[in-house]
């Protein structure tokens, strides 16, 4: 079962093209969307939410978003990095407004979350710190117990402690009901390394990589070798390489194969960030 299925979603802007994006968000999974700023993460999320009109099909809970928008959105929790209901309200008013939108709005849960996150319910949101604002947005997004959570850059601009707290909220949310899913975008790849089950990497409007996170961390490797050693490696066995004065660094998606085939010892475990850089900056 997939909670989101998107096929051939395209969107054209001046000087930017989201080019036939297709991927799934399986039920029970946390999917991380990574990519540089302007790579198309937000455009993808806006297309899924039908905030912008794009080509292709988006299905949420097996239903077409364009046809069943209102019904689907009852079971959807959304956090956008720069947009919220109103900054001139207090958390208390947010509760009063939201219970008119969502059939399943759980006032008790919302108030518990406010307490748990240490948020005052009588202060205007515009006077909140950015970490508090994000926690409030998340509390608001999960208080109607949605089946799917979509978050655009939920950790950007926050300090490491708050970021970790937020990741823990996501873990708890998905543990409560294992048919739930989360789709989140971030350019902070370390966050996604620790939380996502699948990584989708978007670059210049295209998906360049869509793999399980553990595969990325276990199977991918960075070979450090000399020019001579590099010349022996077949082009089919690596993704891209970077050369410096003293060594070649080569990214492979199957390090155990490389180890056996070429008898190379120095293969490092890469981080997602390093992998991303190899895709963007590496040579082929």
């Amino acid at each position: 079962m997939n909670n989101i299925e998107i096929k051939n979603v395209s969107k054209k802007y001046d000087g930017f093209l989201l080019d036939k994006i297709s991927f799934d968000v399986p039920s029970g999974a946390i999917v991380g969307l990574i990519g540089e700023n302007g790579a198309g993460k937000t455009t993808t999320i806006k297309s899924i939410l039908n905030i912008i009109k794009s080509d292709g099909t988006v299905k949420i809970f097996n239903k077409d978003v364009k046809q069943n928008e209102k019904e689907i959105k009852q079971d959807l929790g959304v956090v956008l990095d720069d947009s919220f209901l109103s900054t001139y309200l207090t958390p208390k008013y947010i509760n009063s407004v939201m219970k008119d939108f969502y059939k399943n709005w759980d006032e008790e849960k919302y108030n518990d979350l406010l307490k748990q996150f240490g948020l005052p319910d009588n202060k205007l949101i515009k006077d909140f710190s950015s970490g508090m604002k994000m926690k409030l947005k998340i509390a608001t997004a999960i208080s109607h117990n949605p089946k799917l959570l979509i978050l655009d850059e939920p950790t950007s601009g926050l300090d490491p402690v708050v970021r970790n707290e937020i990741l823990d909220i996501f873990r708890k949310y998905i543990e409560e009901d294992e048919t739930r899913s989360i789709l989140l975008s971030s350019h902070i790849t370390t966050d996604l390394e620790h939380i996502s089950d699948y990584i989708i990497f978007i670059d210049k409007g295209k998906i360049v990589l869509n793999v399980p996170t553990d595969e990325l961390l276990e199977n991918y490797g960075i070979i450090k070798c000399s020019k001579e050693e590099f010349s022996k490696i077949s082009e089919d066995d690596y993704i891209s390489y970077k050369r410096s004065k003293y060594q070649y660094e080569v990214l492979t998606s199957d390090k155990s194969k490389i180890k056996k085939k070429y008898n190379i010892r120095a293969i490092d475990k890469p981080t997602i960030e390093e992998i991303m850089l190899f895709y963007i900056k590496g040579e082929r």
């Binding site: 939410l49 039908n50 959105k73 009852q74 947009s83 919220f84 209901l85 109103s86 001139y88």
Partner: peptide
């Protein structure tokens, strides 16, 4: 408040 985008995510 840049609410318009957010409101479109509500039911």
């Amino acid at each position: 408040s840049k609410s318009n985008k957010y409101i479109l995510t509500l039911p």
